[in-house]
């Protein structure tokens, strides 16, 4: 039986329009054999969670470069918990200061990829995480 493809939602949360990173990552994940759903710009935390549940993804990748991560990412984690879906792996990419990074990881973000990270790091992380969870 063919192995089931990993399903990933790549989302741009908040108002910032910097989607180069999100699109490059989405394309790299797809080339690595994953099913990728890209949300486009200006998603609210509610829209992200709704899309993730509807699309039945195992991973949510959130891209944010506007500095609003501390206001927008914790609600995503909270809603996932409320919906009994904390098994969805949440990863974040963007300009995230060190102290915020620690907070986000303590509160349920699996990993944060800051500038200079490679797509192969991200792919490797997802594969490892999914394997562990199975």
């Amino acid at each position: 039986m063919a192995e089931k493809k990993v399903r990933v939602l790549v989302g741009k949360i908040g108002l910032d329009g910097h989607d180069r990173g999100a699109k490059v990552v989405a394309q790299a994940l797809r080339d690595a054999g994953m099913e990728v759903i890209y949300t486009g710009l200006r998603q609210t935390p509610e829209q992200i969670v709704e899309a993730a549940l509807q699309e039945d993804v195992q991973v949510i990748g959130l891209s944010i470069l506007s500095g609003a991560h501390m206001q927008l990412i914790p609600p995503v984690l909270e809603m996932l918990r409320d919906q009994d879906s904390s098994d969805i792996v949440v990863i974040v990419g963007g300009i995230i200061p060190k102290e915020d990074l620690a907070y986000l990881k303590e509160n349920g973000v699996a990993e944060v990829f800051t500038p200079g990270s490679t797509t192969s790091d991200i792919i490797a992380f997802i594969n490892k995480k999914i394997e562990q969870d199975q």
Partner: peptide
């Protein structure tokens, strides 16, 4: 401001004065 929302609009959450 760039997207035409006032600072007290729900979509402005977390973004006021940031970039």
């Amino acid at each position: 401001t760039q997207i035409g929302y006032d600072s007290d609009h729900p979509l402005a959450r977390g973004e006021v004065g940031k970039v």
